[in-house]
């Protein structure tokens, strides 16, 4: 069953034309709207690589039908800003990026965390990104990046 519907992504109205309604938001972002920044690593909501904001709430885009996001305000990693945000700069400066496949999802999760709380405890930090799997870094440099981003925000 194919339908045409509208989505609002990164502040822009987008038309999804004649698309199968079974497509996930992740698929539509990546394959129909030219926004491949959200990654597909597990497609069952375990790895967080596809994290986006849906009406300000951090969600796994793989577990949401695109048609269910009609009327929602969706923000992807491409929509965080024209340049690099303090979180993105901290990931670079602290060595939190290796292969980079998990990075967009982690940037979204850390952005979400620091929007909710400016000074997370160690446990809050680990809990907040425990839904984002990284296989390269062992997370150490990612923790450092979060602390650096916090200090950058505080200045």
């Amino acid at each position: 069953m194919n339908e045409t519907y509208g989505l609002r992504i990164n502040g822009r109205d987008e038309q999804v034309r004649e698309a199968w309604l079974g497509e996930s938001l992740l698929y539509v972002l990546r394959e129909r709207l030219g926004l491949p920044g959200s990654k597909n690593a597990c497609e069952q909501g375990e790895c967080g690589s596809c994290s986006v904001f849906c009406d300000g709430v951090l969600v796994n885009a793989c577990c949401l039908l695109a048609a269910d996001a009609v009327d929602a305000e969706v923000t992807t990693v491409e929509g965080l800003g024209a340049g690099s945000t303090p979180v993105q700069r901290a990931f670079l400066d602290e060595g939190a990026v290796q292969c980079g496949f998990c990075t967009p999802g982690l940037v979204m999760a850390v952005t979400d965390l620091l929007q909710r709380t400016s000074d997370p405890s160690e446990t809050e930090l680990r809990e907040a990104i425990s839904g984002n799997l990284c296989r390269c870094t062992g997370y150490g440099r990612i923790f450092a990046a979060v602390r650096a981003a916090q200090q950058g925000d505080a200045q």
Binding site: P36, E78, L92, G100, T103
Partner: peptide, 13 residues
């Protein structure tokens, strides 16, 4: 690094 943190790095997928 910059394209990777911005979601602009082209993976094979």
């Amino acid at each position: 690094g910059t394209p990777k943190v911005r979601g602009q790095f082209a993976f094979s997928s």
